[in-house]
């Protein structure tokens, strides 16, 4: 099922961080879209939870050095 989740990432330090996080959509399977905003420290993902779990996504975010908290 395609679902949407919104996270707060308070350790984005510039617009490049947002672009880096958005880059996960090219790597992770089952992701339809990732939108990251440095201004709002927000990360929005639309993904297929039968392919990718939320935990896997959060691990991928952490592997880039960021910490996401569900909103």
């Amino acid at each position: 099922m395609i679902i949407q989740r919104i996270f707060h990432v308070n350790d984005m330090e510039c617009s490049a961080c947002a672009m880096r996080l958005e880059g996960l959509e090219d790597i992770l399977p089952g992701v339809t879209q990732i939108k990251a905003s440095y201004h709002r420290q927000r990360l929005e993902i639309i993904f297929d939870d039968t392919v990718l779990s939320e935990e896997q996504f959060l691990q991928a975010v952490e592997s880039l050095g960021y910490h996401a908290q569900a909103q």
Binding site: C14, S15, M19, E22, G23, K35, Y38, H39, Q41
Partner: peptide, 16 residues
């Protein structure tokens, strides 16, 4: 943070 220019999502996606 609003002093930082965020390129439009389509542009950053295209570059990436």
């Amino acid at each position: 943070r609003y002093f930082s220019f965020e390129p439009p999502a389509f542009l950053s996606r295209y570059i990436r």
